[in-house]
Design a protein around this nucleic acid. Structure first.
Lengths: 338, 338
DNA sequence: TTGTACGCGTTATCAT
DNA sequence: ATGATAACGCGTACAA
């Protein structure tokens, strides 16, 4: 790389642009930063010079002089190689990156080694980062909450206990209730649910939504089995449901992956979907469409969540006051499973 | 955040440490950068002062003064929200992050908007980044190859055509041949393959490996169907294989996701795995174990790839010469499908 | 081995 | 509206 053969010019600086345009560095700086008080003719000349030398601002110098970091950090819990296997994480990142692309902030990632958390702490608190985003699966991990006292932080998902932190989430309970209603309106009366872990907010909220809808319709809400959001656990839960003695003609599953698991046991028992038992999932991830018949499910706008998280973080950094909790609307995707 | 109530002390600087330790800033700088020529007693005193004031170096200042960027960029093609849905991507990132955690480089991510590729180009070439990593799915995308002339770049996966770029990959062909041999050694003789797209290196190499093993054993290598690495395409290919008239008692599938697809049609036809037809996959991802019976497959050490990519990039940045292509060894994971 | 002093590329303050 | 010029926090010749 780097063909440094004699004539390779150095990366252009403000200084060079200024010289070429016949103005001071201050003026160039103003143009670059869109300060309104610049004469339009001069500005034009400067812009031309910028193009001519192919100038790009040096971020380090900029950050140093302005005394503020120009990067935000995405914190990823190490524990979980699961976090990475989870499409959820990937999509959030995507949303975050997409939003930040239009700002002056750069996105950097740290995987929070629990081996030496002080390192991460030091990095975040060392003044090198303008703010941080925390995404830990569906979970309500808040081990970083206290850092909110020092730098702006935004979390993905509702925290477990009380917490003064900023976060963005979907209204899991309302969405789950809506999904359940689809089952109810299709005429099913023996509706079960395969719920998620009860130590995670989405796990909790989604059963509650199901319960609410069932109560609202005056239906029996005793058919509940729990899984851990994995495909295998969904299959097991379905098996328990079928073996319980109680009839089941519809099931709301707390995520698509478990729904896919439920599919396998339903189908190995010769039960038809949706004729014999209708299924509604949650998330609208790749499992929803890779399954046959394709799954009716709640669309979880994960990329949007990422975007919103970034947006809120930037607002926080720039001192605008924003709501602590913001909910992204979900929608129901009707496919073939109900 | 930021309780700026009166007494909040400013982020500590070299200067402050120097004052406290009673030495010059230069000395502190040396200690921080592990310059050997410092008197151990003084160094100790300095280190103590550093701890005392809780000093963290300012990365921007450091980068500015040393005239070299301290961050590397991970480039992710935007096109594909698929890239993000792909566990492959996530794992590479993880490996990269893990490696970089022990260096002084910071990892930042850009999603390469094809809308305005100049922006990405400018960012990379503006001197703000020490090097870049490119990961684009299983593909051999090399639209960034030319940047190698200006900054160190390392790619994931073998490029399609000739290319002078650095990359790390697994030996897909050898691994595929090895996987096929497992089928052969189990006594199968009518061995088919569900191959990947023939415009991607892994797609190409993996069929070739299968062919080589078949030839080596003197077996018929005409049973080939193609998919696109998705579950659905694997199912379709399996269906074609079964409908071809030729008997099939074993199949090497170019990735686990397609293997999962093949499973569904095998099982819906009442064929037993592995009794009636044995299956071997490739990747050893979550699909391999979420399927029943669990899949025998080639372990693709993706995290290791990420680590290696980062390692090579850092070497490149620091001027060490390294091999252009480095292969990570794979291994066979024997489970229940053969 | 340690300190002095200059420079890195910008922004920001203060004149003009 | 524009231009000097002093920071910003640190690395690094060079001198001592």
């Amino acid at each position: 790389m780097k063909q440094d053969t004699s004539g390779s010019r150095p990366t252009p600086t403000l200084e060079m642009v200024a010289a070429l345009a016949g103005v001071s560095r201050a003026t160039v700086s103003r143009v670059v930063n869109d300060v309104p008080s610049v004469d339009e003719d001069i500005a034009a000349k400067v812009r031309q010079a910028i193009l001519a030398v192919n100038y790009t601002p040096n971020r380090a110098a900029r950050s140093l002089a302005s005394r503020r970091p120009n990067s935000v950090t995405l914190i990823v819990p190490e524990s979980t190689s699961k976090v990475f296997a989870d499409p959820f994480f990937a999509s959030v990142v995507q949303g975050v990156a997409l939003y930040l692309a239009d700002t002056d902030y750069t996105l950097n990632m740290v995987i929070a080694s629990e081996a030496k958390p002080e390192k991460t702490r030091a990095f975040l608190l060392g003044g090198n980062v303008a703010g941080a985003l925390v995404v830990s699966h569906h979970a309500g991990d808040r081990s970083w909450t206290h850092l909110s006292d020092y730098i702006p932080m935004v979390f993905a998902g509702r925290p477990l206990g009380e917490s003064a932190s900023y976060y963005v989430d979907v209204d899991n309970e309302a969405a789950a209730a809506g999904a359940t209603r689809v089952l109810i309106e299709s005429g099913r009366t023996n509706i079960a649910t395969i719920a998620g872990p009860q130590d995670m907010p989405p796990g909790i909220d989604r059963v509650n939504g199901w319960r609410a809808a069932m109560a609202e319709a005056g239906l029996d809400d005793s058919r509940v089995e729990y899984g851990d959001f994995t495909l295998a656990s969904g299959a097991k839960a379905m098996r328990r449901l079928l073996g319980s003695g109680k009839p089941v003609d519809g099931v709301f599953v707390a995520n698509d992956q478990m729904a896919a698991g439920a599919y396998t046991v339903l189908q190995e028992r010769g039960l038809r979907i949706p004729e014999d038992v209708a299924v509604v999932g949650f998330d609208d991830d790749s499992f929803a469409t890779s399954v046959n018949p394709q799954l009716t499910t709640v669309h979880h706008p994960i990329i949007e969540m990422g975007k919103k998280m970034a947006e809120i973080l930037v607002d926080l950094i720039e001192g605008k006051d924003t709501a602590r909790v913001t909910q992204i609307p979900t929608s129901l995707v009707i496919r073939e499973s109900v």
